[in-house]
Design a protein around this nucleic acid. Structure first.
Ligand SMILES: [Zn+2]
Ligand SMILES: [Zn+2]
Ligand SMILES: [Zn+2]
Ligand SMILES: [Zn+2]
Lengths: 141, 141
DNA sequence: TTTAAGAATGATAGCATTTATCATCAAAGG
DNA sequence: CCTTTGATGATAAATGCTATCATTCTTAAA
């Protein structure tokens, strides 16, 4: 579950491009979206390589894996902890510029005895765009 | 995606037992765990019926669907919003008795313009039990 | 620069969870 | 009792991801 047992991590062109693609967007893309983008630069890349490297990058602390809903993961090229807003109309996942409060973790430790090392906070509702456009149901991409 | 188009929801023995089982535990079980439990009372119940009704119950506001990680969903028989602690050692999901702060949603609306209708907060770390037992890796159930 | 070790890749098969299908059953209302 | 139609059980299928493996490529030592 941690890094490989005896091996080390080699630098590959594939992982480089994958990280490049991941950092080029704020859309918190799925593995398949990354796959399609990477294929534009490396037509022969394998989907398995995408999954493999997204996992490796996450373990290396270069990316975050998000999972809203149970069907698929999204990935985040910004590895620093931050909060997200998930629009229930258009499906977009938006970074929030509000401070990460470690005070919450202390509160949990004090009140419950469970020692939190991290926390995750997400908001669900209507994003700014979907409030003005009164479409009943957005595109969801 | 919402309730069925023209129909209505009938009362069935299956859904009754499923909700009963879901309310009988605080372990935030998976669909398969619910399935095994319901089978003890209704040996011929179908797994499809479990999934179908867990979805229906969630839509009815009688349960919550949680998704930590991307492999499977957990369900919560307590439909009121509350926060969870996920132990990274033993895998258990624990209800937290700390107040739900709607102030966070107001802060998001003020600072970002995105109108949050709900939010979700999870903590990750070592639960109380796993701190005292210095096992390197718990049972994960 | 060559060489050897083994990590990473591409291709593909496999797996686990969830959803769709459909004939049959049964809840609700008259 | 009878009709309507939502719900069920059994099963197939879809989805998202992981495992496998022969081959390729990275790395560091010779
Ligand atoms: Zn939106
Ligand atoms: Zn983000
Ligand atoms: Zn624990
Ligand atoms: Zn709970």
């Amino acid at each position: 579950m941690a890094a490989k047992q005896t091996g080390f991590v080699r630098k590959t062109k594939q992982r480089e491009v994958i990280l490049e693609v991941l950092r080029s967007t704020k859309s918190h893309p799925t593995a398949d979206w990354v796959y399609q983008e990477v294929r534009k630069k490396m037509p022969n890349v394998s989907l398995g390589t995408i999954y493999r490297n997204l996992k490796t990058l996450t373990e290396m602390g270069e990316a975050l894996e998000l999972s809203y809903g149970s069907t698929y993961s999204r990935f985040d090229g910004n590895p620093e902890n931050h909060y997200h807003f998930v629009c229930e109309n258009c499906g977009s996942v938006i970074d929030l510029d509000i401070p990460v409060t470690d005070a919450l973790e202390r509160e949990v430790a004090e009140k419950t005895g469970h020692k939190a090392a991290s926390h995750r906070l997400e908001f669900y509702g209507l994003c700014r765009d979907c409030q003005t456009n009164d479409s009943t149901n957005g595109s969801l991409h």
